[in-house]
């Protein structure tokens, strides 16, 4: 059983985000990229399936870009069997990225694609279910629990209020992963360095990216301040609020 995990970098949201001169995009110079946290969860869940013996092979995949080699070597250091980097004209939205990944996994072959459930910059939808549509395979998203046996997966999908729906799905399939059974593992820098020396990243052409999202951004701005919180200068002021609300 072979699992492909598409990986993607997103802006680190703990950093300040600035809009560029066009007023329609983030200022790329200022953005610090990091692995989408839900992709990290997907990779972890895939590696757990491999370690349990349910999967034989985990392939990490990403579209070429800044620091992508490091991200892919890190995935190998964590336990992925191999890494594939896609080249070609850059996808401009989630639909195009999903098309690139769909082309590549169709070439590579897969039983399961495990994608992060969403990314904070996904304006035109969600990678997993869009890939599934291009591949004509079933998809379940918001998954927090996967087991595999006999050509099918049993998955738990999260609803609100802590409710779960359990489903069986025939493979091949795509899953949008919300959370792995345990916190994503960490690969020590020394191990990533060593992998960089010994392993190679396979390259693949991304192929035709399709028409894309079909809508465009007309403006981007930080939410207006002012309606928001009354800022308190010190703990004394905070104590006064707590007393006023009858809490302290």
């Amino acid at each position: 059983m072979k699992i492909v995990v598409p990986l993607k970098q997103v802006p680190d949201l703990v950093e300040d985000l600035e809009v560029d001169a066009t007023g329609k995009a983030l200022d790329a110079e200022e953005v610090k990229l990091k692995l989408n946290e839900f992709d990290d969860q997907a990779l972890e869940e895939a590696l757990l399936l491999k370690e349990s013996g349910a999967a034989d092979e985990v392939v990490a995949m990403a579209f070429d870009g800044e620091d992508v080699d490091k991200m892919l070597f890190t995935a190998i250091a964590k336990g992925a069997n191999k890494a594939i980097k896609l080249n070609g004209s850059s996808p401009t939205d989630i639909h195009q990225l999903a098309k690139a990944f769909a082309n590549a996994v169709a070439t590579e072959g897969f039983d399961l694609v495990m994608a992060g459930v969403q990314s904070a910059d996904g304006r035109d939808g969600h990678l997993g279910p869009i890939m599934a549509e291009y591949l004509s395979v079933p998809c379940i998203s918001v998954v927090a629990g996967v087991s595999v046996s006999g050509g099918q997966a049993t998955v738990q999908k999260e609803y609100s209020g802590g409710m779960l729906g359990e489903f069986e799905v025939d493979l091949p399939a795509v899953l949008g992963i919300q959370a792995a059974a345990q916190a994503p593992r960490y690969a020590p820098v020394s191990k990533v360095r060593q992998i960089q020396q010994t392993e190679t990243i396979q390259e693949m052409d991304a192929g035709d990216l399709g028409a894309g999202a079909g809508s465009a951004i007309s403006s981007m701005a930080a939410p207006e301040k002012g309606l928001g919180a009354k800022m308190l200068d010190d703990v004394e002021a905070l104590m006064a609020v707590l007393k006023d609300k009858g809490v302290a």
Partner: peptide, 23 residues
């Protein structure tokens, strides 16, 4: 923009070529 919505909106958008705007 919910657990069920994610499963539904994306395939409809992709299959019928209708733009989706999330969030």
């Amino acid at each position: 923009s919910t657990s069920m919505g994610i499963d539904i909106a994306n395939p409809v958008s992709t299959a019928l070529d209708i733009p989706t705007v999330s969030f």
